[in-house]
Structure formats: C-alpha cells, structure tokens
Computed example of a mutant assay.
Amino acid sequence: MARRLNVAVCQTGPIARAESRADVVARLIALLETAAAGGAELAVFPEMALTTFFPRWDLTDPDEIRAFYEREMPGPDTAPLFAAARRLKVGFALGYCESVVEDGRERRFNTMVLAGRDGAVIGRYRKMHVPGSEAPEEGVTVHLERRYFEPGNLGFPVFSFEGVRIGMAICNDRRWPETYRMLCLNGAEMVLIGYNTPLLLTETPRLAHLRMFHNHLPMQAGAYQNTVWIAAAAKAGVEEGQALIGGSCIIAPSGEIVALANSLGDEVIVHRADLAMNEDCAKAGFDFARYRRPDEYALIAQAAGPRRPATAG
C-alpha cells in the first residue's frame, strides 16, 4: 500500500513586537485551518512563530526578555492552537522560545514542538547550531542569539507521526550537512524546518544577491544527499524594520522544490509527499549500505593530514 503524507508549510508575515500572543495564535489557527482545507495532515510553522525575532536587539531588562519565552507547551496562550489541531485533525510543528528549569537552573532554548492530529505533544527539538554572538559587534548585523539561547541538548531526535518518521531543525541548523545526516541516520523520512533569516547582512554586502539561493541550496542538497523530504517555513517580510526572506518550500528527496511560497506574508502551501520517493532516490544514487565506506574515511583523513584552521584566511 502506498505511503503518502499531506504536508503543509505555514509561512507567516512579520510579527510586531507589540502583537499579543492571543493575536499571533489566532493567525496561526487561521493558517492551520487553511492547511486543513487543503487536505493537510501535518503542518510546520516558522522558528519563533509566537513572537518577533527579538535577538536583533541588545536587551537588558530581565522582565522584558522573560516575556518572549514560554514556560510550558501548551500553556494558557497556546492551548487554542492545540485545540484547533484536535478539531481539524491536523498535526503541526511550532517554533518557539523555551524557558525550562533543568539541572537546578533556568535554561533557555530555541525550540520546536511536534504535536499530533489529536493535539497531543509527540516530542520536541532544541536548536543545535545557535549563530550570532553574545554582544553586538561593529559592522555585523545584530544577531544576539547566543546571548538569549544555549545550544540544544536533545541531539537530533526522530518521532513517529502517523507512522512517518519525522525530524525537526531550526534556521541555522539547515546550513549544516550533519543536521540532515544525523536525522536520517536516526531514521527520518521527513524533516520539518522553521527559520527567520535577514534579507541583508552588513558584513557581506557582495553576497546580498545570493541570500535566497543560499537559503534553498543546503536544504535541497540535504534532501538529495540523504533522500529525505523537507518542509521549511519562513517568517517573512519587514519585521520591526528588518527585512526577512520568505522562500518557504517543500523539497522532494530528489532535491527538487515541489512547492514554493510566492509572498512575504501569511501563506500556506501544501503537497502530497510520496514516501516511496525516499527509497527510489536512494536506489538511484545513495545506496548507503552498498557504497558508503566509513571504515576507509578515517584512513583517508589521516593520509591527507590536518585541515587548515577554520579561522585561516
């Protein structure tokens, strides 16, 4: 019997700093309803889908910072979204800012939660590749994620959703090949990604015309090299003065973009993912059991000698 999953990408437009959780959740529910009307069984929302992208600011007021984080999921503000999932019978992955007490102290993570079609939490992922810095740097786009979040401590978990193996990743994770490799070694058949990505970087103006190309390139490569489906949701548009790229998409294991958002606002795209493509694409070029030679890689690396330092010019 053919295995297929109707997946939706729910892109959002900008979220204002003053926008309430209730208003944002109402927008997400409207997107989920659109996804359900399009036949979706699973939807993915962007990174930090409940708030503006606050790491663009050098904030110092603890109460102001604390207001951006969720201490439970679902909580009073987000419960309506989980209720909508139950009503619509559409699962979802939601990016949010998590505050949790672990090891006797408060810890903060950039997190994505996976909920089933019954609205129950299946699992969560915490962003591993946290970019930026802890303090503003001259000539560099303000991006202080490392001040507000620590790297994830859950590894690359994979969860069962209606019998489909689902992995998750967040923003900068999508640029690193090990993200896809680890998820797929753990059995992922589909990877859900959320991101907030500036259109321009002060430090690299000559690369400005490549921002969308560099957005899609690693995801298409990750899909192709690991024979996995990818569904990626952006927060897009001009948010609090900073332009964010869109380009939300669904990518087949062949590396082909099969669905692509056209706007910089709230938008839903849906695709019926044929999970047999994973195996077909593996047969076509990436039969790991037959062709990978992990026992030889270390010997090759030793013979080649050490790489130059990452900071070398």
Rank of each mutant, 00 (worst) to 15 (best):
R27V: 01
R27Q: 01
R27N: 11
L28Y: 09
L28Q: 15
L28C: 06
L28T: 09
L28A: 05
L28R: 11
I29L: 01
I29D: 01
I29Q: 03
I29K: 09
I29Y: 06
I29S: 11
A30L: 14
A30C: 15
A30K: 08
A30N: 14
L31R: 04
L31K: 03
L31V: 14
L31C: 03
L31G: 00
L31Q: 01
L31W: 03
L32H: 03
L32D: 00
L32W: 01
L32K: 03
L32E: 01
L32P: 01
E33W: 13
E33Y: 08
E33F: 09
E33P: 10
E33S: 10
T34Y: 09
T34C: 12
A35P: 03
A35Q: 00
A35S: 04
A35H: 05
A35W: 08
A36L: 07
A36W: 06
A37S: 15
A37V: 06
A37T: 07
G38S: 03
G38E: 10
G38C: 04
G38L: 09
G38F: 01
G39D: 10
G39Y: 04
E41C: 00
L42S: 08
L42N: 12
L42M: 02
A43W: 06
A43V: 07
V44F: 05
V44G: 06
V44S: 03
V44C: 02
V44M: 01
F45C: 08
F45R: 05
F45A: 07
F45N: 09
F45E: 04
F45V: 03
F45I: 03
P46R: 01
P46V: 06
P46K: 07
P46N: 10
P46H: 09
P46S: 02
E47I: 13
E47P: 11
E47T: 15
E47N: 10
M48T: 10
M48D: 13
M48H: 05
M48G: 10
A49C: 04
A49E: 02
A49G: 06
L50V: 02
L50I: 02
T51W: 14
T51D: 12
T52M: 12
T52N: 10
T52L: 14
F53Q: 00
F53K: 00
F53S: 00
F53R: 04
F54H: 09
F54N: 01
F54I: 00
F54V: 05
F54R: 02
P55K: 01
R56F: 15
R56M: 13
R56Y: 12
R56Q: 12
W57S: 14
W57D: 13
W57T: 14
W57N: 06
D58A: 09
D58I: 00
D58L: 06
D58E: 12
D58Q: 08
D58S: 07
L59K: 13
L59F: 00
L59M: 11
T60V: 15
T60S: 14
T60M: 12
T60D: 10
T60G: 12
T60W: 15
D61E: 10
D61I: 03
D61S: 08
D61G: 05
P62K: 03
P62D: 10
D63E: 07
D63C: 15
D63G: 15
D63T: 11
D63Y: 13
D63P: 07
E64V: 13
E64P: 07
E64S: 07
E64A: 15
I65H: 02
R66C: 13
